[in-house]
Simulated scan of single mutants.
Amino acid sequence: MEQSGPASSASEAQAAEALRAGKLVILPTETVYGLAADAGNAEAVAAIFEAKGRPRFNPLISHVPDAAEAETIAIFDARARALAEVFWPGPLTIVAPVRDRDRVCDLARAGLDSVAVRVPGHARARAVIAAAGCPVVAPSANRSGRPSPTTFADAVEETGFAVQAAVDGGPCPVGVESTVVSVLDGRVALLRPGSVTREEIEAVVGPLESGGEGHRSPGRLTVHYAPDAPVRIEVLEPREGELLLGFGPGIGDPRWSLSPTGDLREAAANLFRRFREADRAGASAIAVSPIPDAGLGEAINDRLRRAAGFVG
């Protein structure tokens, strides 16, 4: 890449100008920091893949400023609209049939006839996207397979070399990527768990279909979200030399705990940060305490299984 890293945080207007010019931008969201580009600009989208080392078959999420704009690029039925009304702006991605193939290019959709779309809950992200005047793809601003950045400094460290502008939105309050739900052919299926839980979704649209078409969602690789050190999960007793990421009172060193009080939201916010800190500390192996699988725990365990090399 010929671009150099940003010296400081950019304004919304500067970031929008960079996106319109076909450049990459580091964009804050409530989930994780994203590496953003104009969704309709295939060369800009290719630059994301180059910077991340991301496989071309993995589709990207198109971010828009509001639900009305979402329906200019995706075909929503009544259930998709109901989900948008309840959860947007926020960390829910809806996969629906694509309406406008020019504004979200084939590369961004991985050649599929569907598009993944969401309205981010971060006000600065929505301001940048609205000013840019185009759907914006923004996969996590890490190199592929690495933990997703939840702070501005981590995002710049990972992919700042590839961007023209970077927007500092503070620490990401959610800390894991968005929940992904497909609404296709009369079926609603959970493709990727996240902070919007299965139970919350089912309260709006009824029982979710099992299975689904996971290839339509980002983040479905077997090994994903992984630190440098090997990860072992559901560990009750760490082995000699393992750094324990504990969960709950009295479990391991509280400085490395995902949540000393056993709070799932705190654990989600800390997960990628602890992975990064373990890398910086030179950990040779990482052990993670069992995490309850209910509610937000489903999303945390999905990320942990991928970090450990299991298909989720």
Rank of each mutant, 00 (worst) to 15 (best):
L27H: 08
R101H: 13
I94C: 12
A51Y: 07
A294F: 00
L243T: 12
V183F: 09
H63W: 13
A132P: 13
G252H: 04
R198G: 01
I94S: 13
L243F: 02
G241S: 14
E213R: 15
S11P: 11
E298G: 03
A141Y: 08
S11V: 01
A37T: 11
A96D: 08
G282C: 07
A74W: 04
C105I: 06
A189L: 04
V104G: 14
R192E: 02
V25L: 09
P59K: 03
E200K: 12
V117T: 11
P59D: 11
D293S: 14
G111C: 09
E266N: 08
P55H: 10
A18H: 05
E234I: 00
S195T: 08
F152M: 12
E240P: 11
S4R: 15
R306W: 03
A189Q: 08
E2P: 10
L83K: 06
R143C: 04
A127G: 15
L24Q: 14
P6Q: 10
R56Y: 11
A153L: 07
T151Q: 12
V176Y: 03
L244Y: 03
L271H: 02
T93A: 05
G282F: 05
V235T: 13
N301A: 06
P218V: 06
E199Y: 00
G246A: 04
I129D: 13
S8Y: 11
N58P: 01
I61F: 03
G53D: 10
G133F: 06
D154H: 15
P193K: 09
A131G: 05
W88C: 13
S289I: 00
F310M: 15
A307H: 08
R273F: 01
V167L: 14
A39K: 09
E177G: 10
F310T: 03
V204Y: 10
P55T: 05
C134E: 03
R124C: 00
R103M: 03
P238C: 12
V115P: 10
E69K: 14
T93Y: 07
R239H: 13
A68W: 01
G34N: 09
V98R: 02
A51D: 07
G175Q: 10
A37V: 02
A307Q: 03
G34F: 03
P59N: 11
V137W: 05
F76N: 13
N142G: 08
G282N: 06
G211E: 13
E200P: 09
D302V: 02
D279A: 01
C172A: 15
C172L: 05
A84G: 04
G297R: 01
L24A: 11
S9R: 09
P149F: 01
V104W: 05
F272I: 06
A47N: 14
N142F: 00
G160Y: 00
R303T: 12
R303M: 04
A47W: 01
G295P: 07
A108L: 07
G186F: 07
F76S: 09
G212S: 11
A278G: 14
I233R: 03
V188G: 01
F161V: 12
N142T: 10
A132Y: 09
S259Y: 02
G22I: 03
D102T: 14
